[in-house]
């Protein structure tokens, strides 16, 4: 696709023009952390950030949203978001996470209208990653600091300006609409930049055979070892851009009820507890196993890819420094001996 670049001085003008046509979202400071939030004035947008503390997941799967309302007599028409949005400056790992979420919420069998509408109404402008953190491991899980999966437009920072390329037809239209801010350019020097960024990811971990390795070790004491210090707090799931498990909760209104979908987490004991009291995952090690197996075995089995994008948020924010990379290493190193039940 055609490539172009934009002088960094022009970015405020571009963002103002975009804000006139779309609701603009992007990385901003929210009480000391970087969140993907609504940009009310273009000065708020931060483009010199490493990665957002909180992922962009909540822009597609809000922490809580009404999935239907019953007014006491009848169901109220669904309130699907009609907001036309541009998310500007999302990191490639989070873009790739959207491509993974699509596999769950937009399938041949089941379509989630709330998620799909938001995806359709959003243009994702990704910003490639020049400064991966020491906790980043996107290249381990199949991603890339300059990856474009899940994005509509990819931008790359080359100092005074940003390179831009369209990834999807939607992205091409976007760049065409705002072409006056961009200079045409034959071919940007993406490869060199991308290689440099890739080399900055120091995590050395090969998870090529992770699925069969985990499947072989389902019944293994190593799960008890790796889960010993896990508090089961669920911070990792809430920050994870690909964790999508949810709960459905009834709330009463003045005349009727509404059903609210909220984030949930497989690390919580009640997640799987039956009304009878029986719980198939009644210990923390079984729950951590579920979390790891879901991402690196079950996701692979259902969709042919693993369900982790290597953004490193769970590594950075775990209150007891449980590092998923270390956990995977320990699991792969464990002797393949099933534990007697």
């Amino acid at each position: 696709m055609a490539e172009s670049k934009i002088d960094k001085n022009k970015i405020p003008e571009l963002l103002k023009a975009v804000s006139a046509d779309y609701t603009l979202y992007g990385p901003k400071d929210e009480a000391g952390i970087v969140a993907m939030g609504r940009i009310n004035s273009v000065e708020e947008l931060m483009l010199d950030y490493r990665n957002s503390t909180i992922s962009a997941k909540e822009l597609f799967l809000p922490r809580a949203e009404v999935v239907y309302e019953f007014d006491g007599q009848k169901f109220v028409d669904d309130k699907l978001s009609d907001e036309k949005r541009v998310i500007f400056g999302m990191r490639p790992c989070d873009c790739r996470a959207l491509a993974l979420l699509d596999r769950n919420f937009d399938t041949d069998q089941v379509k989630d209208p709330f998620y799909i509408t938001r995806r359709q109404n959003t243009i994702v402008v990704a910003l490639a990653c020049n400064q991966p953190a020491s906790s980043c491991f996107c290249t381990v899980t199949g991603g890339d600091p300059f990856g474009q999966e899940g994005a509509d437009v990819l931008l790359g920072d080359i100092g005074d300006s940003l390179l831009a390329k369209a990834v999807t037809p939607k992205g091409k239209d976007f760049l065409a609409s705002y072409s006056k801010f961009f200079l045409r350019q034959g071919s940007g020097n993406w490869d060199k930049q991308a290689k440099e960024a890739r080399n900055k990811i120091k995590t050395e971990l090969n998870i090529e055979n992770i699925k069969s390795c985990l499947d072989d070790r389902f019944e293994n004491d190593v799960w008890k070892t790796v889960s010993l210090k896990c508090l089961g707090c669920g911070a990792c799931s809430y920050l994870c851009p690909t964790c999508y498990c949810f709960d459905l909760v009834d709330e009463k209104t003045s005349t009727g009820v509404k059903k609210v979908r909220t984030w949930d987490c497989c690390m919580f004991p009640l997640f799987t507890k039956h009304a009878s009291g029986h719980n198939p995952r009644d210990v923390n090690s079984a729950r951590l196993r579920q979390k790891i197996m879901h991402k690196f075995s079950y996701y692979m089995e259902r969709y042919g890819v693993n369900g982790c994008v290597g953004c490193g948020r769970c590594v950075r924010r775990c209150p007891v420094n449980l590092d998923i990379r270390g956990v995977l290493e320990q699991l792969m190193a464990a002797p393949n001996i099933a534990t007697e039940k």
């Binding site: 919420f105 709960d247 459905l248 949930d264 799987t272 507890k273 198939p280 075995s297």
Partner: peptide, 15 residues
């Protein structure tokens, strides 16, 4: 234990 019943919410899996 189920919530969505349509394979989305992530809790009723065995493997």
């Amino acid at each position: 234990r189920m919530k969505c019943g349509i394979g989305l919410c992530g809790r009723c899996n065995i493997g």
